[in-house]
Write a protein that binds this DNA or RNA. Structure first.
Length: 482
RNA sequence: GCUCCCAUCGUCUAGCGGUCCAGGACGUUGCCCUCUCACGGCAAAAACCGGGGUUCGAGUCCCCGUGGGAGCGCCA
């Protein structure tokens, strides 16, 4: 038996081994995160392996999504990506070893027989499994039948999985059947490639979804037949949709990249995921460094957890508000471009972030709220204009225009003084001045504080828009954009 | 059906036999702040699945039940 599995004597080697058959969803990302954290925490190595032996369903597009998603989140790998389809020679080699040692045998049973067998067993309310007919087969092989290769699983005894999360889980060998290692066409199957790879890549900690817990005793048996000791295992519970049901496309099993597209920050996604099934006292916010310092797989919960989109949103806003504006600005630029806007065609992005950070839960929202700084609004919001850009507001807007025309310096403070001064002179509350001005400048009723809005917009745009608003207020017909 | 896993507020969780009439966070509700939208502040409602044990004492340990989940492919 190996010593304490998380001993720091040997740097751990962990891996993330997705199969490129769909998109990389949030559950997979969390597994990757936990694996990555374990490696980083203990100064180990994180390996990326693409399990693409299912050539029917594996796609290059899916591989790209995995790589892009990992990069976006900053889950960097130290080795790989390794592709299983490029290791077929190696699997063949190991398979031969197993065959030679008598740990594997060729099975000539037809699919029809297997299906019938399964049906019978189900009818008898038994667990469907291979009956081992070819296990002891002697004599010449049947003609014209391409055999599969099966593992000769021990018939009795117990396999114990010492799981870092579940604790000790025991399986009876008699519950296991002789699984197929290689198909009739010679290609290796999942449970076999995983064993070979985890061994070859010297993986010390297999951190994966708990849908694999039942596969583990089989894999351990194969490893032992190969004369190897199994690594430590940590089976993390599945992630459920917001409705508490299994994640599916209908509710939240979206690609990680969709979170990027919807305006989430990688910091928020990572923070959200690390708190899903793991905690450190009452702490909710974890920087990347803190996660690495504090995360311990052994503390991961055993129960599955449901995703909570609202909390992700909250974290996203938290990071939008607290991260370095320069960093957020880079993300904002990306989203502005997606909107068809030129990020350089307006005020400095860092200042935009500083002004908008408290009123946007996502970067998509921030980009949309900030669009007025980068292009001329499409006219005025009808209701807003009706209320704030009437004849009654004209005098105030005219005064504002006059004062802003030669305001020096063009700062937030100076703009503030103008607006409050106009309000005082008119004996009106600030809102009576600020709101019409806001509609005039932005076309709508929502924007950063009015002085900040003026400052960011700049003199030229401010005056042009005031002129347009004045024209509108005068009933001079529809304003021409730009 | 069989095997394995799981079970604290709506959700994520703290709790590792007494300090728990169960704490934090998201969300919800109310109040405050306020030039819009927000941010923020304060407050409130909200949970130990059920039943047996063990123990002086159980959310915490054991058993059973119930309810979820996973696996049982020439898928991964």
């Amino acid at each position: 038996m190996p010593p304490e599995p998380t001993s720091r004597a040997v740097p751990p080697r962990t891996r993330f081994a997705p199969s490129p058959t769909g998109y990389l969803h949030i559950g997979g990302v969390r597994t990757a995160l936990f694996s990555w954290l374990h490696a980083r925490r203990h100064g180990g190595v994180f390996v990326l392996r693409i399990e693409d032996t299912d050539r029917e369903r594996s796609t290059e597009a899916s591989v790209n999504v995995i790589l892009e998603g990992m990069r976006w989140l900053g889950l960097d790998w130290d080795e790989g990506p390794f592709f299983q389809t490029q290791r077929f020679d190696r699997y063949g080699e190991v398979l031969q070893r197993l065959l030679d040692a008598g740990h594997a045998y060729r099975c000539y049973c037809s699919r029809e027989r297997l299906e019938a067998l399964r049906a019978e067993q189900m009818a008898r309310k038994e667990k469907p499994r291979y009956d081992g007919r070819c296990r002891t087969r002697t004599g010449p092989p049947p003609e014209g039948v391409a055999p599969v290769v099966r593992f000769r699983n021990p018939v009795d005894g117990t396999v114990v999985v010492e799981d870092l999360i579940r604790g000790r889980v025991a399986f009876q060998n008699r519950e296991l059947d002789d699984l197929i290692l290689a198909r009739a066409d010679g290609t290796p199957t999942y449970n076999f490639t995983v064993v070979v790879d985890d061994l070859d890549m010297a993986i010390t900690h297999v951190i994966r979804g708990d849908d694999h817990l039942n596969n583990t005793p089989r894999q351990i048996n194969i490893m032992r037949a190969l004369g190897a000791e199994p690594p430590a295992y940590a089976h993390v519970p599945m992630i459920l949709g917001p409705d508490g049901k299994r994640l599916s496309k209908r509710h939240g099993a979206v690609s990680v990249l969709q979170y990027r597209d919807e305006g989430y920050l990688p910091e928020a996604v990572l923070n959200y995921l690390v708190r899903l099934g793991w905690s450190h006292g009452d702490q909710e916010v974890f920087s990347r460094e803190e996660m690495i310092e504090l995360f311990d797989v052994r503390e991961v919960n055993k129960a599955p957890s449901a995703v909570n989109p609202d909390k992700l949103l909250w974290l996203n806003q938290h990071y939008i508000k607290t991260l370095d504006p320069a960093l957020v600005a880079r993300h904002l630029a990306w989203h502005l471009e997606r909107l068809g806007l030129d990020p350089t065609g307006g005020p400095a992005l860092e200042e935009v972030v500083a002004a908008q950070r408290e009123r946007a839960k996502t970067l998509v929202e921030m980009a949309a709220n900030s669009a007025f700084l980068f292009r001329e609004p499409e006219g005025f919001d009808e209701k807003a204009a009706a209320k704030h850009l009437g004849a009654a507001q004209r005098p105030i807007l005219e005064v504002l225009r006059a004062k802003l025309a030669d305001l020096e310096p063009w700062t937030r403070e100076a703009a503030h003084a103008v607006v409050t001064g106009v309000a005082e002179d008119a004996g009106a509350k600030l809102g009576k001045v600020a709101q019409p001005l806001r509609v005039a400048l932005t076309g709508g009723t929502v924007s950063p504080p009015i002085d900040v809005t003026i400052y960011l917009l700049g003199r030229a745009r401010t005056l042009a828009r005031l002129d347009r608003a004045l024209a509108h207020a005068a009933g001079a017909g529809a304003a021409e954009p730009g």
